[in-house]
């Protein structure tokens, strides 16, 4: 299958048809996408800002870790609703530069999260309450916040950069 055939198939799926034809589908998915965004970013504020060093007199890094699954939940919500948007109009999204850049930043954000999980998390959780994270851990946390701010900006402007209207 080439690109055009894949897009044609995606647009013909039940999800693609619902997104285009049911009046409620697009606003519902958008609302859920915004709620997922707030859930993801809110959880990252709680975790990443603490790793960077804020609030260290009040909370240990290990005590903020339960918010990582919350971030993943928000991400999952946005992945599902995002697939819905894409299946609705694949041909409109794919050539859009803001969409492509958004996907690239999400990919880098995912790799960054893996680095956090595999290389940083154990050491960070082992720190005494009130202790500061290492430079590398702080950089991973800061990168995470910046990447997702970039994702939000690109997501908000992409309707205006690719003729989606």
């Amino acid at each position: 299958m080439n690109e055009a055939e894949i897009f044609e198939w995606l647009a013909a799926t039940g999800l693609g048809q619902i997104m285009r034809n049911a009046g409620w589908a697009w606003p519902l998915f958008e609302t859920l996408h915004f709620i997922g965004l707030c859930t993801l970013f809110g959880a990252l504020i709680v975790v990443d800002l603490r790793v960077i060093g804020f609030g260290k007199e009040h909370v240990s890094i290990s005590s903020v870790m339960p918010f990582i699954p919350v971030a993943l939940f928000g991400f999952a919500l946005n992945l599902i609703t995002g697939i819905g948007f894409f299946c609705g109009y694949p041909d409109n999204y794919w050539p859009n530069w803001a969409f492509k850049l958004k996907m690239a930043l999400i990919l880098i954000g995912g790799i960054n999260a893996l680095v956090f999980e595999l290389l940083e998390r154990r050491q960070l959780c082992a720190l005494a309450p009130g202790a500061d994270a290492g430079v590398q851990g702080k950089m991973v946390a800061g990168t995470s916040l910046l990447l997702w701010i970039g994702v939000i900006i690109l997501g908000r402007i992409l309707p205006y950069t690719g003729g989606l209207g």
Binding site: F41, A43, I45, V64
Partner: peptide, 25 residues
């Protein structure tokens, strides 16, 4: 994202999630 994100996390903490984490944060 900042306002609603912060409020949602605060609310689920009050509702019983991640109790070990101090509310002072």
């Amino acid at each position: 994202a900042i306002i609603v994100g912060a409020v949602l996390m605060f609310d689920i903490r009050i509702l019983g999630f991640a109790r070990q984490m101090s509310l002072k944060w």
